[in-house]
Lab assay of single mutants.
Amino acid sequence: GLTEEQKQEIREAFDLFDTDGSGTIDAKELKVAMRALGFEPKKEEIKKMISEIDKDGSGTIDFEEFLTMMTA
Rank of each mutant, 00 (worst) to 15 (best):
E45C: 15
S22A: 04
E40N: 11
G21N: 07
T68E: 09
I10V: 06
V32K: 15
A72S: 09
I53L: 14
E5Q: 12
G21Y: 05
T71A: 11
A33G: 04
P41D: 04
S58H: 07
F17N: 02
T19A: 07
L37C: 15
F14V: 00
S58N: 09
E5W: 09
D56R: 12
I46G: 03
D56W: 10
D56N: 13
E40Y: 12
D54Q: 11
L2C: 11
M70D: 00
A72V: 08
E5H: 12
E29D: 14
K43A: 14
I53V: 11
E12C: 14
T60K: 13
G1C: 14
L16T: 08
I50E: 04
E65S: 14
D62G: 08
I61G: 00
F63H: 01
T68L: 14
K42V: 08
F66H: 00
A36W: 14
S22P: 01
K42G: 13
G21M: 05
M34Y: 05
A72Q: 09
A27E: 05
A13C: 14
I53G: 06
I25S: 00
P41L: 14
A72I: 07
I10N: 01
I25M: 05
S22G: 02
E52A: 12
K55A: 08
T68K: 11
F63W: 09
S58L: 08
M49Q: 04
F66G: 00
I25A: 00
G38Y: 03
T24V: 06
F14D: 00
E29Y: 14
D20Q: 05
R35Y: 10
M49I: 10
S58C: 10
M49N: 04
K47H: 07
R35V: 11
E45I: 12
R35Q: 15
E64L: 11
A36M: 11
M34I: 07
F39G: 01
D54C: 15
E65H: 13
G57H: 10
A27Y: 13
I61W: 04
D20V: 04
I53D: 03
D26S: 14
I46Y: 06
E40I: 11
G23C: 09
T60W: 09
K7N: 03
F39P: 01
M49L: 11
T19L: 13
T24Y: 08
M70Y: 06
G57L: 06
